[in-house]
């Protein structure tokens, strides 16, 4: 029995032998119920396309204002960076700093690192900094909060709605799509990507 056929449950330490799954099937731990691994048909092209789409939407979500306010002629539009800077100027620098990390830098880094890893694998080899990139991806995963920010935008809009005229911007739609694409991208199991990398290096088709 070769070692890479084994799976250890990270939540209860049980050992299993990997078995092939049907499409859509998930292997659960018999002892604690944790999802061990799922069926995946890794299509590097498709995953790369998803990454590039996410990158484009990320740029749009950050270039265009998310919402604009109109209060009897006075007009103010806010981009995501605008929100970070305004929070900084408002005297709560830690809030600005944390928000910038959680909704800007971490998602941006995830997109760039995915692109880096996938572009390399598509050329049939592990990129030079593959290990570091994969470690950074796994460390950032819990701290990337685009979806929470999305809900925050909606709450802010409804809060202001009664008082002023709220005009949703292109940035809002882009950010909504970004949330979905980012969720799709990070739903891929990084451990599978390690397996793919080994297959690619060994010349086996992914």
């Amino acid at each position: 029995m070769s070692l890479d056929r084994w799976v250890v449950c990270e939540q209860c330490d049980s050992v299993y032998t990997r078995r092939p799954l049907r499409p859509g099937e998930v292997a659960d731990c018999a002892r604690c119920g944790h999802h061990l691994y799922r069926h995946h048909r890794f299509d590097l092209e498709r995953l790369l396309a998803l990454t590039l789409a996410t990158a484009i939407v990320f740029v749009m979500a950050n270039v265009y204002p998310v919402v604009a306010l109109n209060a009897q002629g006075a007009y103010n539009a806010a981009t995501i960076w605008g929100a970070v800077i305004a929070t900084w100027e408002s005297g709560v620098a830690p809030v600005a700093f944390i928000s910038a990390l959680l909704v800007f830098f971490f998602p941006l880094s995830q997109i760039c690192l995915f692109a880096y890893v996938l572009l390399g694998l598509r050329r049939g080899r592990r990129p030079a900094e593959f290990r570091q990139a994969m470690h950074a991806l796994s460390l950032m995963q819990p701290w990337s909060m685009a979806e929470v920010f999305m809900l925050g935008i909606l709450v802010a809009i409804v809060k202001l709605h009664g008082v002023m005229t709220v005009i949703p911007g292109i940035g809002l739609w882009s950010f909504a799509i970004l949330t979905l694409l980012l969720a799709a991208l990070t739903s891929y199991d990084l451990q599978d990507l390690w397996d793919i990398a080994e297959d690619v290096e060994a010349g086996r088709p992914a």
Partner: peptide, 11 residues
């Protein structure tokens, strides 16, 4: 926290 940051930027 995000709601407050957005309101600060908008209003």
């Amino acid at each position: 926290v995000f709601v407050v940051a957005l309101l600060v930027a908008l209003v």
